[in-house]
Structure formats: structure tokens, C-alpha cells
Design a protein around this nucleic acid. Sequence first.
DNA 1: GAGTAAGTGGAGGGTCTCGTCCACTTATGA
DNA 2: TCATAAGTGGACGAGACCCTCCACTTACTC
Lengths: 234, 234
Amino acid sequence: MPDQPSHKPPSPAAGEAPAELRADARRNRERVLDAAREVFAARGVDAPMSAVARRAGVGVATLYRRFPTRSALVTAAFEDQLAVCASAFEEAMADPNPGHGLYTLLEKVCTTLVTDHGFETVFMAGFPEALHYDRERACAEERLAHLVQRARDAGQLREDFAPADISLLLLAVSGLAAQPPETALPAARRLLTYLFQSFQAHPPSRPAPLPPAPPLDLSGLHRPLPVRTATVRP
Amino acid sequence: MPDQPSHKPPSPAAGEAPAELRADARRNRERVLDAAREVFAARGVDAPMSAVARRAGVGVATLYRRFPTRSALVTAAFEDQLAVCASAFEEAMADPNPGHGLYTLLEKVCTTLVTDHGFETVFMAGFPEALHYDRERACAEERLAHLVQRARDAGQLREDFAPADISLLLLAVSGLAAQPPETALPAARRLLTYLFQSFQAHPPSRPAPLPPAPPLDLSGLHRPLPVRTATVRP
DNA sequence: GAGTAAGTGGAGGGTCTCGTCCACTTATGA
DNA sequence: TCATAAGTGGACGAGACCCTCCACTTACTC
């Protein structure tokens, strides 16, 4: 085995931030991620890979070389948003008023969920490909329980409130995400307000006013059937 | 043009209940509808048509002959459930206690939504192929507004309650429908209770107890990515 | 400026689903 | 029992998408 002097630097970190990519490759990677965010937000995370490639002005092969599976692309595309959620968590833990911290946290997360359809899917799917996901989740679970406990101890949550109600709330909000953001956002805010008023241990006899009602009527529910439209027949 | 004596009866009603089908055809139609309900509930309304046909023990052509488009099949398959909802509406209108009527109506509808994933999709999509849909919807809208107004007049709903909040509630519940029924059903009940307590005009200082919390934690949110899985590569 | 390996694009084979066509089967009525 | 038209099943062409392969291009090093 001949010793070949390698010209490459010793590849400092084989982590997830590939710093040793060639300049053009790095540039393309970014373009793909941008395109993915746009396409996924508009057409859902099951949009054709070729659509993402086209939007990025890149061949399909380039896309697959960088992100071998769809999940890898999806995960990478929404890492930033995920970081936002994580930092919101930190803030909530640091808030001296646990009830307020919890409310603010959920409002932030729900706003993100409802604004970006792609992210909603990813968040709800638990992006199983994300390396740190299991650790992340266990940690989140624990911290959330702690947050809830603190709020309940402070007399800010009713006795029979359960940590599962947080999941319940997230699922409920995700149901709004199919609507266009200009509807979904006020809807989410109003839903959160309703729920938080119910979560309170000692509701005031005259409940606080609600944020404005979303522009929703029964016809506003229209969500297109996920029909497999092959060819339009003549 | 020779006058051919037609042996067929004068085709009494060309409506949607094809009574003039041959016996075996009518039988097959029913089998297809049963299969469709099962397959759609299990795999969503975008399951392959061939899967429905196979399950019904019928060729694809038979299926397409009876239901030329997927929407037609979907609509027909869930007509019964729709009728249940409609009759629940009637009951609600007839209830002398408007608040109770409204609550019962929503509980019934939500239970159906959350129990049958196929129906949830159809309901939320507004099944645009259903002939009477537009009429139906306008009518529903009107009756719902009436119901809400009655309940508010009776002092059972808070002043700032809006009819749009009904849509909000339905969307929220539809977010639970992705969970398996044994989770989604208690979740829906609990969500409804929370919301109704918030809807009340004069909440008691000590809110009524909640139904049991659903078995949900953050990992329970896991919803599979709608990934386009083509071929498993070796 | 030249050598080289990393990077790239697009063609193409494979798979899945759609929806139609047509030769065969079967219920129905005389 | 038989004639007949309604009904049926499976094959099949078309289209969408997945993902890999390979000849070509380009950034980087000396």
C-alpha cells in the first residue's frame, strides 16, 4: 500500500456542516435548500424532487448527491426553523413567569407551524432522519413537563391539566395549517386564546376579549382532495 | 328509423340510486363501495383504485364503469356518513336547549371525523363532486348561524363568539384525525370540552371536570412523512 | 497554464398508477 | 332453452416520478 501524500486538509469535522466542499458545490447546496423551502412550502414535502432541482437551477443528480434521500433534504431544509423553536424553548424555560413563558413558547411554535406548510409537515412527522431527533425529543418532553409543572405549581394551570394537552394543542393547530396563512394565522391565535382561557386554574368571571375571528365560513374549509390526478382525459 | 319495442321499463328515475341495474351489477356496486370505505379509511382517499378493486374482488374496469372518477367513488362511499351528519343537524335544530343541541351536534360530527380518516378528508374537502353540495352547504351555513344565534340569545355563548369559531373547531379537530382512533377519540372529546368551556358566556368559577387525557406525548405526534417511496434501493 | 479530482447535467431504465379497450361471461325475459 | 344485451376482467399504452450512471465541465493546487 503506497503512501500517497493527501493534498486535502485532514477534513476537520465530518459533521453535518460540510465545510470542505468546493466553492461552487457549497453555493449549489444553498440554492437547493432555498428552492426546497419554497417548493415544499408551496406544494408540500412530497413535491417532485425534479421540481426542487429545476427551481434551484440545478440537475437532479446534484440534488441527489447532496441529499441522498428526500428525508435528508427535508430535514436539512427546515433545520433553521427547528433552531428557532429550540431557542424559543430556552426563553420559555428562562421566563420567571412560567405561565407566560409557556404561552409565549406555544404562540411562537404555532405561528411557525401555521405560516409554513412544509415545516408543519416536518414538525409533525418528527423528521425521523434528523440525527439528534431522539435525544432532542426526550429532552423537549422533559423540559415541557417541567414547564407545565412549574406553571401548575404557580397556580396558573387547572388541576386536571395534563402535559398531553400540549400535544393536543399542537395537533389542533396543525389542523389549521392547511388553510392559507392569512386565514390560518388569526385562526391559530384565536384558538390559542380560547384554549389558554380554558387551561387557567381560576378563570375571571368575565373572560378576556378574543383576538379577531378568522375569515372562515363553512366554505372556507375547502381543502382540495388529495386526488391522484394522472392525465386529464379529453 | 325503425321503431324498436323497448323491453326496458321506462327507467323510472334517472337519479343517483340506479335501481335499474342488473342484479349482479348492483351487488358488485355495493361490494365496491364497501371496499372503498375500508381502503380509504386505512390508506386515505388517494389509495390506488386498483387496491379498491382488488379488495372488492372486482376488475378495475367494473369500478371505473360505475364510478368514472375518483371523486365520484369517494362521494358515493361516504354518502351515508354524510346523511348521519345531516340528521344530527336536524336533531340539533329541534333541541329546545340550543346550547345543548349545538354541543351534541358537534360532538357527533367530530366523533365521525376522528373515527374515519377517509370521511375526514372528504368532509374537509367539501366533496365538490356531490351534486347537492352547494345547496347543502349554504343551507348548513344558514342553519348553523341560526343555531349559534339562538344559543347566544339564550345567554349560553359569550358575546364575542363568532360563527367562524365553529369552522375553527372543525379544523382543529381534523388535526387530530391523523392519529389512530383510540387516541384521536379521547383527544377530540377533551378538546371539545376545553373549547366549550371557553365558549360559555358565564363560566363557573370552578370549571367542570374534563374527560380523561388522551395517551399523547410528543412522540405520539409522529405522523409519517408523506414521502413518495418509489422503489427500495438495495 | 496545466493536471486532477470534485462536481455537474441530463438521459434513461425501472416502477407505479391511471383509465380504456375488447373479447368473454352471465342475468334476464320470452 | 335460447337470444341478447348488460356486465365483466385483465391486458395494455401513457404519463409521472424515482434515482443511477457516465461523459463532460470546472474549481483548485502547483
